[in-house]
């Protein structure tokens, strides 16, 4: 899911803690995160500080949009915990992502019911149309990212596609493409 290198957030630097340069936009984001961590008053001698990790990552993802390795390293340093402890949590929760997300997030369910009803075909068609591989980086224009999920609990509607918070049931490859095109058209107008 979150294997190895991800890109640095809006900058050419590769590390946290001010030792390498970031664009000022990224710097501002790190500053915002630091200000938040500051309010928690973590005590490096108190093991209970680890309990704050999820909260901090939540905020970090809100600020950066995703959690690349640089951000994880920064959080580890600030919390005085091993980077592996951060990475372990980030990789455990589906909610956290180490890849930047597009403006619109499309997910296709590959759970058993959906799979049997042909959801993989939907996913492949979307990959073809969007020109990206599922569960990797978003489209170059930043408009879409594409992912796959395991059973979302709507098997009665299989195969299921989710676009942002909207559920599309009994979806076909053609119908999925139509949804994409509608969004594209709307975005072009905006």
């Amino acid at each position: 899911m979150s294997d190895t290198n991800t890109t640095a957030p809006e900058g050419n630097g590769t590390a946290c803690c001010g030792c390498k340069k970031f664009s000022s936009a990224a710097e501002a984001k790190f500053a915002e995160l630091d200000a938040f961590i500051e309010t928690l008053g973590l005590d490096p001698a108190d093991e209970r500080r680890r309990g704050r990790l999820i909260q901090i990552l939540h905020r970090a993802q809100h600020i950066f949009g995703y959690l690349p390795r640089e951000v994880q390293q920064h959080v580890a340093e600030k919390m005085a915990i091993p980077e592996s402890a951060v990475s372990g949590v980030v990789s455990f929760y589906n909610y956290f992502t180490t890849k930047p997300k597009g403006k619109h997030v499309i997910n296709v369910c590959l759970g058993t019911a959906c799979y049997v009803k042909g959801s993989e075909g939907v996913l492949r068609e979307l990959e073809r149309v969007l020109g990206i591989e599922a569960d990797t980086n978003p489209t170059p224009d930043g408009l879409f990212s594409l992912g796959s999920l395991r059973c979302v609990g709507a098997c009665g509607l299989a195969p299921v596609m989710l676009v942002d918070d909207k559920v599309y049931g009994k979806i076909t490859p053609a119908a999925a493409v139509k949804v994409v095109n509608e969004i594209k058209a709307k975005e072009a107008q905006a």
Partner: peptide, 11 residues
């Protein structure tokens, strides 16, 4: 207490 290793991902 090196913390080089961790569980990654799930399932």
């Amino acid at each position: 207490t090196v913390g080089a290793l961790t569980g990654n991902g799930r399932g």
